[in-house]
Amino acid sequence: MMDVRVAERQTDLEILRYNPEIAGEPKLERYTVPTKTEWCVLDALNYLKDNVDPTLTYRWSCHMQVCGSCGMMINGEPKLACKAMLRDYPGVIRIEPLAHFPVERDLVAVADDFLAKLKRVKPYLIPLEKRLPEDGEYRQTPAQLKRYRQFAMCINCMLCYAACPEYGLHPKFIGPAAISLAHRYNRDSRDGGRDERQEEIATAEGVWECTFVGACSEVCPKHVDPAAALQQVKVASTVDWYLEHFMSWVQK
């Protein structure tokens, strides 16, 4: 007798479908697909698209938790479909597009707002000192790397925006990932762009919309801990404010 190591099962999926070409609200549709226990939710969606309904629309690319494309709500939680394993979901699995974003079609969320905000915070190195190639590379010690490395792990998957109730309530909030990435560059020893970024993130639409719910850090698939980044930005911005208003002669 053969040992069956790869168990098969029928998995019920409830998927929110939205067709922008037809007027009306998104509707949950029920599907049953044959799956294997070690599959992830993305595998089940791929099976469904390949074998049952080719019109199902969703984003994915790497299937290995790197590209950040397949974020969706799985049983109400923001998850990467490639990181959500079927064995952890015994019953019907409800799949919806990421919360707080408009729906483009089916499981595709409109990312325009996040991308515009990401651009505003200048998430790239603004060199502290301009160096020419002949001057050599920008050097950094392991301790200096450690200061920001965790925040550099962000893959822009937007799960934190789908988890953040304050973003849902105030759509103008720049939000967890963009502010964390600004913080990542602010903490980089080679960077000199903090003042420019503060003009965006130390505003009412920036870090001050955050009420430290902490949901962003709980759902982050890369352990970036955006909530930590935002609290650190608040502390630093508060120190800035007191320096600017009471001790303007002190260099920041």
Partner: peptide, 15 residues
């Protein structure tokens, strides 16, 4: 957008 004056209150809130 101007920088926020929230830090006055937030400093007291945190302390």
């Amino acid at each position: 957008m101007a920088k926020s004056n929230k830090p006055i209150i937030w400093g007291a809130f945190a302390a």
